[in-house]
Simulated scan of single mutants.
Amino acid sequence: MVRLVIPTEDGNGLDARLSQHFGRAPYFVVVEIQGDKVASVQAVPNQSEHFGGYGLPPDLILQLRPDAVITFGMGPRAISRFQEAGVAVYRAQSETVKENVEAYLQGKLEELTEGCGKSRHGEECQKHQ
């Protein structure tokens, strides 16, 4: 079983749209993959300090026990935190969870190894990497 966590703008499961800003995503969609099929999908509200809760987004995501995170980009500290925990981070290619899960299953996603220093990590981050 592989567990993917994807920051999204809404909690619409596989149809959820990815957030352009990793840490300020309102939801994290957790997709469990068994073999080459989606076994389960769950939307988890972002309750980090960005939304009045406690902890940083990477810490909240690590509590979800991911094998990988799929996102448009993230800061260098977040990437480092995931690397230390042995969690791969992949650059999203599409706007929806479903499209990115399909790309992951086909081995088409590029692994992010360096974070973006910009305050917004969507298109601006992709331009700078």
Rank of each mutant, 00 (worst) to 15 (best):
M1L: 13
M1Y: 04
M1E: 08
R3A: 02
R3G: 04
R3C: 01
R3W: 03
R3F: 12
V5T: 01
N12G: 04
L14G: 03
D15C: 05
A16F: 04
L18E: 10
S19N: 05
Q20F: 10
H21D: 14
F22E: 00
F22N: 01
P26W: 07
Y27H: 14
V30K: 05
V31M: 02
E32Y: 00
I33L: 04
Q34T: 00
D36C: 09
K37S: 15
A39V: 03
S40T: 03
V41G: 05
V41I: 08
Q42E: 02
Q42G: 00
A43F: 06
V44M: 00
P45G: 04
Q47P: 11
Q47C: 15
E49G: 12
E49W: 02
F51M: 05
G52T: 05
G55R: 03
G55L: 10
L56I: 06
L56D: 02
P57T: 05
P57C: 00
P58Y: 11
D59V: 14
L60H: 13
L64H: 01
R65V: 00
P66S: 04
P66C: 04
P66Q: 05
T71I: 05
G73W: 08
G73I: 14
P76H: 15
P76E: 11
R77A: 12
R81I: 08
Q83D: 11
Q83E: 15
A85D: 07
V87F: 01
Y90Q: 15
Y90R: 13
R91W: 00
A92L: 15
A92S: 10
E95N: 11
E95A: 12
K98Q: 13
E99T: 07
E99W: 12
N100A: 09
N100W: 06
V101K: 09
A103S: 10
L105M: 12
Q106W: 12
Q106N: 09
Q106R: 10
Q106G: 14
L109V: 00
E111L: 09
T113W: 09
T113M: 10
E114F: 15
C116W: 07
K118T: 15
S119M: 14
R120K: 06
G122H: 08
E123K: 12
E124I: 06
K127M: 10
K127R: 09
H128E: 13
H128P: 11
Q129C: 14
Q129T: 13
